[in-house]
Nucleic acid binder design. Structure first.
Lengths: 238, 238
DNA sequence: TGCAAACTTGCACGTAGTGTAAAAGCGTGA
DNA sequence: TCACGCTTTTACACTACGTGCAAGTTTGCA
C-alpha cells in the first residue's frame, strides 16, 4: 500500500504533505485561540502566533493573510458545516427548507463550541468585525452558488435578483439567530441552550418564509409554532 | 454678522473650524477617488492621498483609519441617505414599506453617481470588500435601531430575533438590488437605468414581503408587478 | 539513490497605523 | 489689537504588517 495512486479521487488518502499542512494549519489556529484566551483581542502579534505554533513568522503568512484571518478560520469552519449540509439537500426542495435543514447541523456542541468561545472572547471589542463579516459574506456566496445551480438553465437572467436577495436574506437570518442566541445564553452549550438555538434558527427561517408579517412573533421560545407545515422537521436525522 | 451665538442649534452656522474640517474631509475623498481613477485600486498609498489632498500623512489618519475607509466614506454617504429617509417615515408604517420608500431615494443620479463610479472602478478586484462590507453592516445597525424604536416598549425581548432578522434581510435585499443593477447596467445613469434600479429595489422588497415564494419572478424589468398586491400592504399590522 | 517539486525559513523592504510633542490656526474676551 | 486657551496640523519615531526573494529543507517519485 505505497500511497494509492492519485487516479481520480485524491481526497481518500491524504499524502504526508497534506497531513503536515493540515497539522500546521491546526497548530496556528490553536495557537491563535490560545493567545486570544491569554492576552485578549488585539494584544498579540502575528509573530506571537508563529512562535506559539512553532513556525516562523513568514510561514504564518503563508497560511493566513493576517492574525484576524487565523481566527476567522474558526468561523469559516463553522459555516462550512452548514454549506456542506446544504449541498446534500435534494435540488427540488424549496431553498428555505433546505436552508433550515442545513442550519440544524449548527446546533451541535462540536460545531458551535469553538465559535461560542471565539464570540465570547471577542464580544467586548469590535476587533473581529473585519474578517468575521467576510466569513459570513463568503458563506453567502456559497449559498448563492447553490441557489443558482438549482435554478440554472431556466433563464439565469431574470432570477438574478431572486437568487441574490434570497441568499443574502438566508444568511442574514441565520446570523440574526446566532446573534440572539449568543446574547441570550452566552457560552452556554447545555442541551436546553442548544434547543433554544435550534428553535431560533427555525423561527428565523419561518419569519423569512412568512415575509415578516406581524410585527412580532407570538411564540414563546419553546412553542412549536414555526415548523408546523413549512419545515421538514420530520426527518429524524438527530 | 459676527458669528451668531451657539445658543442651542449649533448646526445652523458652522464655525470656521467645522468648515475647514468638512473641506479637508472632502478633499481627502476627492483625492482618493482621483487616485483610484488614475492608478487603479491598490496602486496608491495613504501618503499619495495625503499629498494629493495637500495635507500630511498623519492628518490623513486623523480623518480616516485607512485608505479603504476614505473610499468607503462614499458608500457611507450613499447609505446614509436611505437611513435619513427611513427615519422620516411614520412609525406605524410597516417596516418593509418604510424600507421600500426610503430606498427610492437611492435611485437618484446625485446619490448613486459616486457609488456607481466607485463600484465600476473597484469591481475587478476584491480590494474593496473589507470596508465596504462594514459600511453595509453599519447601515444594517441603523435599520436595526429604527426597527427597535418602533417596537420599543412592547416587550423588547422576544422580538429581538424579529428585529435582527428583519434589519439584516432588508439590507441584504437592498444590496442584492444594487448588485444586480450594477451588473446589468454598469455605470449607466440614464433615466431608464434609474427606473430599472427603482424597479429592482421594489421587486427586492416585494420578494422579501412575499417570503420568497415562487422560485422565480415572472415580471419583466418594467412590468408594474411589484407593489400592487404582493407586498405586505395590509397596513393594520395584526 | 537521485532528481524535481513543494514547503519552510531568514532577510530586506515598503507601507500601515499610532504615540508624542512642538507648531500653526482659530475663538474669545480684555 | 493683542494675548490667552483650545483645537488642529505637522514632523518624527516606532512597532507591526504583508510580501518578494533566494536560499535551505522536506517530500514524492522513478
Amino acid at each position: 500500500m505505497t500511497t494509492s495512486p492519485p487516479t481520480a479521487e485524491a481526497a481518500a488518502v491524504p499524502s504526508r504533505r497534506e497531513l503536515n499542512k493540515a497539522a500546521t494549519r491546526q497548530a496556528i489556529t490553536d495557537a491563535a485561540l490560545g493567545l486570544l484566551r491569554a492576552k485578549g483581542p488585539g494584544n498579540f502579534t502575528a509573530e506571537d502566533i508563529a512562535e506559539a505554533a512553532g513556525i516562523s513568522r513568514r510561514t504564518f503568512f503563508n497560511y493566513f493573510s493576517s492574525t484576524d484571518a487565523a481566527l476567522a478560520s474558526i468561523v469559516h469552519g463553522f459555516l462550512d458545516i452548514a454549506i456542506q449540509q446544504l449541498r446534500l439537500r435534494p435540488a427540488d426542495e424549496p431553498m428555505l427548507e433546505s436552508a433550515q435543514a442545513a442550519l440544524m447541523a449548527l446546533a451541535d456542541p462540536k460545531a458551535v463550541a469553538p465559535l461560542a468561545e471565539l464570540f465570547t472572547l471577542t464580544q467586548q471589542s469590535p476587533l473581529m468585525s473585519h474578517t468575521e463579516l467576510e466569513a459570513w459574506d463568503h458563506c453567502r456566496a456559497q449559498v448563492f452558488a447553490v441557489a443558482r445551480e438549482r435554478v440554472a438553465g431556466n433563464r439565469g437572467e431574470q432570477d438574478d435578483l431572486y437568487i441574490h436577495a434570497l441568499a443574502g436574506s438566508v444568511i442574514s437570518c441565520g446570523k440574526a439567530a446566532m446573534e440572539v442566541w449568543f446574547s441570550r445564553r452566552g457560552p452556554d452549550l447545555s442541551p436546553a441552550s442548544l434547543a433554544d438555538l435550534r428553535q431560533l434558527l427555525i423561527d428565523a427561517m419561518a419569519l423569512l418564509g412568512a415575509g415578516f408579517n406581524g410585527p412580532q412573533l407570538k411564540s414563546t421560545p419553546r412553542s412549536p409554532v414555526s415548523t408546523g407545515s413549512a419545515t421538514p422537521t420530520d426527518s429524524r436525522s438527530s
